[in-house]
């Protein structure tokens, strides 16, 4: 899968690197070029945080009539933007008010009605469902009817906060909601081992979900340790994991990273961000060859 970090100008190696890259990859046309080139070289999916930038990229790919060739994995919420808005509008209360306004402006009558009821009752589950419906509708209206939205993935900040606070009811409700919408419930987590342990404790079915978590040769961001994450991965009954950070934020070259990833069990897919045409071509060609034989 193509990851979207470069399209948001993110580098977890250093912000200097992201600044040096400039804004070119943020332009929907350039980003769509990179996704298309990745497709030609073996990618078959796009994992992205739902934001104005990525929705523009989806629209661009749709206009090029290539959207149906992509499996879409949408991560919500785009935490960075929401934290930024909370900073600007004065905290969580201001943020909720702003999101409520955006939902109202979306003109989706069902979502608005659901949201109004949720606000009146201060019901967190209804609020969550309203918000998720709103994000799904944004993706679908940008990607179009031919789009193949596979999974709605909960952003790692939300997943890991809910894990830490033992909100098992929230996970149950989220899984139920996404399955009813015909989507695979997805979770992006920075605490893979903790996540799997909690799901087992709560008797939640791991086989129905997808987990995006860091896996790389040097153990970067593999919490609490590389060994613990590998052991947990090995304990799964099915390939449900999408490996992210496989290049350890650009610290590893694809040729250095591939051997480790190819040898891991229960990996359903990998997501890799690319910021240049040569990257897209070489990286996906290499990974397609090595992972698919």
């Amino acid at each position: 899968m193509v990851g979207d970090n470069p399209f948001h100008n993110i580098s977890h190696l250093s912000q200097d690197r992201a600044r040096a890259r400039g804004n070119a990859t943020k332009q929907p046309e350039c980003a769509a070029d990179l996704v298309m080139l990745s497709l030609e070289n073996g990618a078959n999916g796009f994992m992205f945080s739902v934001s104005d930038t990525t929705l523009s990229i989806l629209r661009e790919i749709r206009e090029r009539e290539a959207i149906e060739h992509l499996s879409l994995y949408a991560i919500v919420p785009y935490a960075y933007e929401y934290v930024r808005v909370a900073t600007q509008v004065g905290g969580v209360t201001g943020l909720i008010a702003k999101v409520a306004k955006e939902i109202t402006m979306s003109r989706s009558a069902g979502t608005i009605a659901m949201g109004l009821g949720a606000v009146i009752r201060s019901n967190p589950l209804s609020l969550m469902k309203t918000y998720l419906s709103y994000e799904i509708s944004r993706v679908k209206s940008s990607a179009g009817k031919k789009a193949n939205l596979i999974s709605l993935m909960l952003h790692e900040v939300v997943t890991d906060m809910a894990l830490a606070l033992d909100l098992d009811w929230l996970f149950r409700s989220y899984i139920d909601f996404t399955l009813r919408r015909g989507l695979t419930p997805g979770f992006n987590t920075g605490n893979f081992t903790y996540f799997v342990d909690k799901f087992k404790t709560w008797n939640l079915d791991l086989d129905k979900i997808a987990i995006a978590a860091p896996f790389n040769k040097i153990g970067f961001q593999m919490i609490p340790s590389k060994i613990a994450c590998e052991k947990t991965l090995d304990s799964l009954l099915q390939p449900i994991v999408i490996a992210i950070s496989i290049l350890a934020a650009g610290y590893l070259k694809p040729t250095e990273a591939i051997g480790y990833i190819a040898a891991l069990p229960n990996i359903k897919g990998v997501a890799i961000g690319v910021s240049r045409e040569s990257h897209a071509r070489e990286t996906f060609r290499l990974f397609h060859k090595e992972l698919n034989g």
Partner: peptide, 8 residues
């Protein structure tokens, strides 16, 4: 750069 739990 590791810890028991990762948040932020």
């Amino acid at each position: 750069d590791t810890s028991f739990f990762w948040l932020g």
